[in-house]
Write a protein that binds this DNA or RNA. Structure first.
Length: 998
RNA sequence: GCUCAAGUGGCGGAAUUGGUAGACGCGCUGGAUUCAAAAUCCAGUUCUUUCGGGAGUGUGGGUUCGAUUCCCACCUUGAGUACCA
């Protein structure tokens, strides 16, 4: 082969790697392990665009590098293949989602293969494969059979809880559980019916059924988790979401809130990602305080219970409790109806009615309007005993804390605004602070005043003392609150994991793990049933026979031995919350993964993926991992040591300027207006012909007059405007010139078939460009298939890395790829002299060794720092230098190939084999850097004056400071700079710089 | 509003503990080669200039012999979050 032929080479080596299973990882090895993982893709119908493989290329380079460094590398890939788009498509076309998914996966696989990734495909997983979701169901059962013991601070088997209940009741149990738990003794527990016991246990289990307010998306026909909603609409499709009460499976992730927070400290993840998880978990430290309601005769008369009502509030500022001048309840608070006085009832009810009509979104977007109503009732301040008004207001959220706040208007801006608006007193409890304009929320340095025993104290002390006193007097205690809510786990969809659950007497029962998987049933339609049940309600064979332990026809349901199965399916994050563990032993049919392989691979060393998963996948996966760790199933409680978010690749859209010519309004002319413009075609104007709207108009007018398309008499009657329209980027070349014929014949531009183009003087037509998100609708999508065809996978890989730092967003411009392509051709030419391979075994020169070793040093540092863009530059410099040195020496070129092979593996393999090797280059040792080759004897010193470099001077490195100063001062250019003045000071840093201060 | 990240030529970007700002590549300009084109090769390409130089890393200050790098304030852009008590 005489010339670099990427198509031939790449096909050859991709086949070689597949046939020889070059990248198959072993679960036993003498070598140290290294696990490199990509966030697996959802196989969408559109296939990959050049933005998608960015992270895969980076991780592949790292994986290949680690193999050269002597590691046993696990680098798998698979598909997150359950999901909404395939199901939406199924609803529209009737096509089974499994089929669409299968086809999409084929496309993905072909596209991934052609980029030359070193994946171990023997470990591929698909979340929609029953052999995989068998274990997703199994994990669900484990969660169901567990509760969170706060004393041990870990999950435990539900059996341990039952045995405590049997012996002691639930008084001593310290668990994370539902709020509304009744207390019972051991005797009571033992006397409860099985159903009652099950009901109680459900309140403790880590996955549980409950009636919760969920985000219901009518358009998608399903509930959504908080992280699946963006700006009040669904993340997928942008459909409206409403609050609705439904019975749903939930995951008690809140049990792990603190550990999820603590775990962030020991993992090397990007700070912004950690910050958003921290925010999402939302820990706040403060106190629970209980206020008694003043039991007036009116309230007492209306209720049998004579004990005073209590309003529990959570506050982060118990130190400001003497600043309380009113309380606010959420309109939905259960006490509202009980305490509202007759006089206020009408107002209160009207307000509740009004707020319930407002959607969550309205409430969120309209933060400015202050609204609320006085209930007529009073609470008693627990310390001072004073009467405090009780209001309701929708700035207090029912879903957070207790749905009630103690309002401290002097210290909280919302309370302050509310108090001002409704003329409620604003007592000042801060020493020397002016609160006439705004609340004072600074904690540090502020001294509390007018606060009984807290007066004169600063924040820290006041906080501790206030909690101490509350606990002593028995109406409050220190508490930590989390914003993190339990995660809704049911979806009313077809294309997801079925729950291994049937219902007996309305209570959920787990199917024994040995009968898994419970395979998704066939249905006629993928829509919800007529009576509003989820799509699985359409299945005819969807009942559980406990005797035969098998799924049977619904007609056999007798609720004695055959029971109905769960109709919901699991959400998208179920399968992705543990897949990284499955890769460690993907083919295992006996268990989740063998102990031995889990023990060997431990966890992911490097995880690369998008930042959009910060509060979804990455939080849930950490939660499941911690749970599996508690159960002794996995050996570590954080699944990924290091994580990198790759930046998005943006598209560079192309715009062409189209004219609209019309007759000015109100022009009276004898001809009909249409005649003036009827012969004027659609015109496009090249970008460089104008810089303002006026110029644009002139260009068009001149063109029309010139071509006699416009009668000069009517020139002033027409108006010309421009609008920019997207042109497909594939029709534009590197110099921003449009392929005019291609544009006219493009299927999307049928309207412009006879359009005319006003071109530049050189007859080219220039488009203007703008960076936008890469998307089909913007005609700026670049397909990697085309790039691989024209320039090859090695060029694609190098270019994606060359674009800029991995973590940054950056625009794609195909024109730039010619740079890396010609680099590869130059590399090839180092080995070839004309048509012949020409390699010398001669000893390299000092210069050649210097080039090689500085490249080794830089590339190694770059890879360790994930700075892949700079190592591509380094390769270019090395090849440029070696070309200039006419170097064709084996001792230089062999190590160079190893350096390049992680980035451009195909060309490296090819040249390596041409050098006479039969084995793949992929496990050859990485070249060792030797500093001795970089030792210099002289330095080209920058000579600066007041810090500005004016000229350079080559001096020996062993020259003393004094000699340097003498030589520099004696130099004619120094004298010219100084113009006779004597310098104040001369700074000399040997080996670095000389700075003369004037 | 709050939190975080980032502002460097026409463009993507480089400058690793403060020490020659603009590496490398694209694009552009000129030249060689060619009947011509593609490809390839060579030279130039921050701005400004009276060709000596001078200015310059979002803006304004500061620390330093020396600042793209450190500190303060501000501006702009992007991301996340949003009545969380």
């Amino acid at each position: 082969m005489m010339q670099y032929n990427h198509q031939e080479i790449e096909k050859k080596w991709q086949e070689f790697w597949a046939n020889n299973q070059t990248f198959k990882a072993s679960n036993t090895s003498e070598k140290p392990k290294y696990y490199v993982l990509d966030m697996f893709p959802y196989p969408s119908g559109a296939g990959l665009h050049v933005g998608h493989p960015l992270g895969y290329i980076a991780s592949d380079i790292y994986a290949r590098y680690k193999r050269h460094k002597g590691f046993n590398v696990l680098h798998p890939q698979g598909y997150d293949s359950f999901g909404l788009p395939a199901e939406q498509y199924a609803i529209q076309t009737g096509q089974h989602p499994a089929k669409t998914t299968e086809e999409n996966i084929k496309t993905y696989r072909r596209q991934l293969d052609q980029i030359g990734f070193s994946f171990d495909w023997s470990r591929e997983v698909r979340t929609s494969n029953p052999e995989y979701y068998k274990y997703t169901q199994w994990i669900f059962i484990q969660l169901f059979n567990s509760w969170y013991n706060k004393d041990a601070d870990k999950s435990e088997d539900i059996e341990t809880l039952i045995s405590v209940f049997e012996k002691e009741g639930n008084a001593t149990v310290n668990a994370v559980c539902d709020e509304d738990i009744i207390s019972f003794s051991a005797d009571e527990w033992n006397s409860f019916s099985t159903t009652k016991q099950q009901e109680i246990l459900l309140q403790y289990r880590l996955t549980f059924l409950s009636d919760t307010e969920v985000n219901w998306c009518p358009a998608l026909g399903t509930v959504l988790a908080n992280d699946e909603i963006v700006n009040g609409v669904s993340e997928r499709g942008g459909h409206p979401v409403v609050r609705k009460k439904m019975t749903q499976w939930s995951m008690r992730i809140s049990a792990y809130a603190q550990r999820l927070l603590d775990g962030l400290e020991k993992i090397d993840w990007p700070q912004p990602l950690k910050d958003s998880q921290t925010n999402w978990i939302g820990r706040s430290q403060g106190a629970m305080v209980s206020f008694d309601v003043l039991m007036t005769d009116e309230i007492k008369n209306n209720h049998s219970d004579k004990n005073p009502f209590k309003i529990d509030v959570f506050t982060t500022r118990p130190d400001t409790i003497f600043g309380v001048s009113f309380m606010t309840l959420a309109p939905e608070h259960e006490l509202v109806s009980k305490i509202t006085t007759e006089a206020q009832r009408a107002d209160v009810e009207a307000y509740i009615e009004a707020t319930s009509k407002r959607s969550e979104r309205d409430r969120m977007s309209d933060v400015k309007t202050i609204s609320g109503v006085f209930t007529g009732a009073y609470a008693i301040h627990p310390f001072s005993g004073e009467k405090v008004q009780i209001w309701i207001g929708d700035y207090v959220l029912a879903g957070y804390g207790t749905g009630a706040v103690m309002a401290v208007p002097c210290g909280d801006q919302r309370d302050y605004d509310f108090a001002k608006y409704f003329n409620i007193p604003i007592p000042n409890i801060f020493e020397g602070v002016d609160i006439s304009e705004a609340a004072h929320s600074d904690k540090e340095g502020t001294v509390i005043a007018n606060s009984d025993f807290l007066s004169g104290l600063k924040y820290q002390k006041a906080l501790k003392l206030s909690i101490y006193e509350m606990e002593k007097r028995g109406f409050g205690y220190g508490k930590i609150n989390y914003r993190l809510r339990d995660a809704v786990f049911s979806r009313q969809r077809y294309w997801g994991e079925p729950f291994p659950v049937y219902y007996k007497d309305g209570m959920p029962q787990m199917i024994d793990a040995k009968h898994l998987p419970i395979v998704l049933p066939e249905v006629e339609k993928y829509l919800p049933t007529e009576d509003g049940k989820p799509p699985l309600g359409n299945a005819e064979v969807w009942a559980w026979d406990v005797n035969q332990s098998t799924v049977v026809s619904n007609q056999l349901i007798d609720n004695e031995t055959v029971f109905p199965l769960e109709l919901n399916t699991m959400p998208g994050w179920a399968g992705s919350s543990w897949y990284f563990n499955r890769y460690m032993d993907a083919g295992n049919t006996q268990e989740f993964a063998s102990k031995k392989s889990l023990q060997y691979w431990q966890n992911v060393d490097l995880y690369i993926g998008g930042s959009e998963h910060a509060t979804g996948h990455l939080l849930y996966a950490r939660f499941w991992q911690k749970f599996l760790f508690d159960k002794g199933i996995v050996p570590v409680d954080e699944f990924a040591k290091k994580l990198i978010n790759q930046g998005m690749i943006l598209g560079t859209s192309a715009f062409v300027y189209k004219t609209t010519v019309f007759v000015k309004n109100g022009c009276a002319i004898d001809k009909s207006n249409d005649d003036v413009i009827e012969n004027i075609p659609t015109l496009f104007v090249s970008k460089n012909l104008f810089s303002s709207d006026d110029e644009f108009e002139n260009v068009v007018k001149n063109y029309l007059l010139d071509k006699k398309l416009l009668n000069p008499n009517f020139e002033d009657l027409v108006m010309i405007t421009k609008n920019a329209i997207h042109a497909d980027v594939s029709l534009v070349n590197a110099s921003d010139e449009l392929n005019i014929e291609g544009f006219k014949n493009h299927p999307l531009n049928q309207d412009y078939k006879s359009a005319e183009f006003i071109t530049e003087t050189d007859n080219t037509f220039k488009v203007s460009r703008e960076v936008e998100k890469m998307s089909k609708s913007k005609y700026n999508v670049v397909n990697p298939d085309d790039i691989c065809e024209e320039y090859g996978a090695d060029s694609l890989r190098l270019f994606e890395m060359f674009l800029g730092p991995l973590e940054q967003a950056k625009p794609w411009k195909t024109s730039g790829i010619s740079g890396v392509y010609s680099f590869l051709k130059k590399l090839w030419k180092l080995f070839y002299n004309g048509e012949k391979l020409s390699i010398s075994d001669a000893t390299p020169t000092k210069e050649e060794l210097k080039t090689l070793h500085k490249t080794i040093k830089k590339v190694e540092e770059d890879i360790e720092n994930f700075s892949f863009n700079t190592s591509v530059s380094t390769f270019m410099i090395a090849v440029n230098e070696l070309t200039a040195q006419k170097c064709n020496k084996r001792e230089i070129l062999e190590p160079l190939l190893v350096l390049i092979s992680p980035y451009a593996p195909h060309i490296a393999e090819e040249l390596w084999s041409q050098l006479g090797y039969n084995e793949s280059i992929s496990t050859v040792d990485f070249p060792r850097f030797e500093a001795k080759h970089l030792v210099e004897s002289a330095k080209n010193y920058p000579i600066s004056f007041n810090g500005k470099m004016r000229f350079t001077l080559e001096l020996p490195l062993d020259m003393s400071k004094e000699e340097i100063e003498q030589t520099v001062m004696a130099h004619e250019k120094t004298q010219a700079q100084l113009q006779g003045k004597t310098p104040k000071k001369v700074i000399i840093v040997p080996g670095k710089i000389v700075n003369i201060v004037g």
